[in-house]
């Protein structure tokens, strides 16, 4: 069991968990991920390692509620535990001195670029982060990134904070203004990464995208996470999860990510029915207890 030591909401749908996992913490490098299984009978899902502390033996996970499993994970509080956490998995980010490295994070994808920022800075890069969210409350890790970056540009779709517009538009402006961008590393929703690859391609800027396809074991055994890169089949768990964004078949990735949409909807509904039924049952139990004890606490 892997104990949650701290838990807090970063946005209404995004939660940060500090999890005790000393073996993972000691080998973690930027770009790595873990596979977690919340409880017995739960599914295995990949999550980026947003940070690690080898001395404390902890890793940080930043999770957005998108379905039943992530909701259950986000319902955990400090002192509760996750059944299984395995990792670190995947190949670490290839850190080089690109001169000026720009990190682009969309929504919870910002958790992927956060550990890359420090490593790129340490390798001698000028580091800029562009981070986006729907509105002000969905922009995460701005202050944390600020500690490792030369500049951080928050962007919001609705203009409620920072740059009014998509991260891709802000990136294009930055490339045109500065003319020194050596590499772009990105993580976020697939449509964002796809659009971003379109922005950097004409400039010939090296662009690395962190992909998050469906996975089961995370060690190359099942092949469920296969993606097409430069016309070849790659397994994101052992060959990635980072690939040259200019050669990733994003349309195929988008389509494959929808494979279990119906089952995910079922699981979501069931979780909520269960929660309501559970709440009703607990309520009934309290009434019975009160009746039995004459209202005195047991």
């Amino acid at each position: 069991m892997f104990t949650v030591q701290e838990a807090q909401w970063l946005t209404p749908k995004v939660r940060r968990l500090l999890v005790r996992a000393p073996r993972v913490a000691r080998s973690h490098r930027p770009g790595h991920f873990v596979i977690v299984r919340v409880h017995e009978g739960g599914e295995r899902i990949p999550l980026t390692i947003a940070n690690s502390d080898n001395e404390a033996g902890t890793i940080t996970l930043i999770i957005q509620v998108v379905g039943a499993t992530t909701e259950k994970l986000c319902a955990l509080d400090a002192g509760e535990s996750i059944a299984n956490v395995v990792g670190p998995l995947g190949r670490p980010t290839e850190i080089e001195n690109f001169g000026h490295a720009v990190l682009v994070g969309g929504g919870v994808g910002t958790a992927v670029i956060y550990p890359q920022a420090g490593a790129l800075r340490a390798a001698g890069n000028r580091v800029t982060a562009i981070i986006g969210g729907r509105s002000r409350e969905y922009v995460i890790l701005e202050a944390e990134l600020g500690a490792h970056c030369d500049e951080v540009f928050p962007c919001t779709d609705d203009g409620s904070y920072g740059y009014h517009g998509f991260v891709t538009a802000r990136l294009k402006e930055l490339i045109e203004e500065r003319r020194d961008v050596g590499a772009v590393l990105t993580a976020g929703p697939v449509p964002m990464m796809r659009a971003l690859a379109g922005v950097t391609r004409p400039f010939g800027i090296k662009t690395i995208a962190s992909l998050n396809p469906v996975m089961v074991d995370g060690t190359g055994m099942c092949g469920g996470c296969r993606v097409t890169v430069d016309g070849k089949m790659k397994f994101a768990c052992v060959d990635g999860p980072e690939f040259d964004a200019h050669t990733v078949d994003f349309a195929e990735l988008t389509d494959r990510l929808s494979t279990y949409r119906d089952q995910e909807a079922l699981a979501w509904n069931r979780l909520h029915e269960f929660t309501e039924a559970g709440a009703a049952a607990r309520c009934k139990m309290r009434e019975l207890e009160e009746a039995a004890t004459g209202g005195r606490p047991l």
Binding site: G41, T69, C222
Partner: peptide
Amino acid sequence: YSANEFLTRVNLMGAYRFGETDTPVI
């Protein structure tokens, strides 16, 4: 599917009992 993925979903993850378990299989 690879056979590995199909069998892992059904055997290891118990997808044949989807509902009691959380891992789906087509």
